[in-house]
Design a protein around this nucleic acid. Structure first.
Lengths: 242, 242
DNA sequence: GCGGGGCATTGATATATGTCAAAATACGCC
DNA sequence: GGCGTATTTTGACATATATCAATGCCCCGC
């Protein structure tokens, strides 16, 4: 039986206290500067699966550092279609879509019980004017989001169903590894439907791709428990055309 | 016969002199501050169709404001597949992908004869520490890119071929309108292949969609000259699901 | 004005993924 | 612990788009 890897208790101790240095801002700052950043953050807890962190159209005040749990972001089309644009996990920052218009342009929804640190953006800007390394880091975070989106465009625009799923699993694997978790065994918090929306596929296609990966011994799937059995071969799927 | 609308001479007079205020930074700044920003920019001219502004892997120094002409950005997959991630026109800023890693993550290639203003990013950061309105504007530009990418993800993930093409044409139309050009008559500078890459389609599919739009009287196409005959109906294509 | 090379169009056919439907499995609640 | 609902899996079939191939068009240089 697979063990859940995204474990709230574990994460809480991992990122003990709302310390932005560890949590989301790996910049070299004096402890006095750290204090200052910490004082502007506002911890918000108690989000449960399905809760909105913000909705499309909400006024913009803050970015959010995810302290525990995970969220999905989705954009809605006027005709009702919706598209998941990302799954954000502990330690990641969301809300940057809203800076350009002062209004959120997508929904952010908790995938599980979660906590966030709100970072009022005005104050973040003020402090970053005085702390070049924070300023630079803020820019990097925003740029990282742009690069991430480019990758998804590549995925959606030129990859086939199984390649997309492989890319999705590998991306998860990497992000878990970066957090010190097992890169081969983990639980997915999202449905086939949500994965499909993110990958531009229907849920049945996602399900079939999972089944096929299992058949050929790449992974072991038990609904939402994933065990990557042959990481190199899964990676190779992405590097070879067709 | 349709007139080309993207006209270099016209654009040059439109954005007379390398004035960043008009060109790319619509912020209220004192003329002294404007001077200061202007002095850091470096005009680069002489790009012709096919020239690289930067390549994936190039070290990062500057953002670029397009002063005349237009560019495309594309990402390459290790197996050789490439995906166009955007078409940038006069007045837009490119290069933000490189901030996160100090290395460009995509290629930027001129679609026609073009000129750019290089904006050394270190200096931009320095100045923006002193000018909050510039700082805010820089953040907005980066955020705008994130929002734009979300829109493309929606397009690639959940729209059908003709909807994608309609979205593409309408986006062009809007951006031209914002620059004071005709929103219904214009020239495309890119091939069917490039449009297809951007929209996640093959060139034949793009061609067929153009032909169909023409058949039903939505647009008039003459290879790269577009005339939108029924803008409202083209817009409606996007709002109604199937 | 003629010829050649790249694009674009169009047609015929193949195929990956979507759609619809049913059965199986997991999950929450009493 | 068992029932009811939601999710997932699997199957059969439909269809949008890709693929392959032929023809046509346009631009550019000679």
């Amino acid at each position: 039986m697979l063990q859940p890897v995204i474990n709230i208790a574990e994460l809480r101790s991992h990122c003990s206290s709302c310390n932005l240095r560890e949590l989301c801002m790996p910049v070299d700052l004096s402890s006095m500067d750290m204090q200052r950043i910490n004082t502007l953050t506002q911890l918000k807890r108690g989000y449960v699966r399905g809760d909105y962190l913000y909705r499309s159209g909400d006024p913009f005040h803050s970015l959010y550092a995810i302290r525990s749990g995970s969220f999905k972001t989705q954009v809605l089309h006027e005709d009702g279609r919706e598209q998941v644009t990302g799954f954000q996990m502990t330690g990641e920052i969301i809300g940057m879509d809203a800076i350009s218009t002062d209004v959120h342009t997508c929904d952010a929804i908790a995938m599980e019980s979660s906590e966030v640190c709100a970072l009022p953006f005005d104050q973040l800007e003020t402090i970053s004017r005085e702390l070049p390394s924070l300023q630079r880091h803020l820019h990097k975070i925003m740029s990282r989001e742009i690069v991430r989106d480019q990758g998804i465009m590549l995925l959606l625009g030129s990859m086939r169903a199984e390649e997309r799923l492989a890319a999705f699993l590998l991306n998860f694997s990497q992000r878990l590894a970066a957090r010190g978790f097992s890169p081969t065994q983990f639980q997915l918090r999202m449905s086939r439907q949500e994965i499909g929306s993110y990958l531009g596929l229907k849920l049945e296609t996602v399900s079939r791709a999972f089944s096929h990966f299992q058949e050929v011994g790449l992974i072991s799937v038990k609904v939402r428990s994933i065990d990557i059995l042959d990481l190199p071969r899964l990676q190779a799927l992405l590097k070879s055309s067709t």
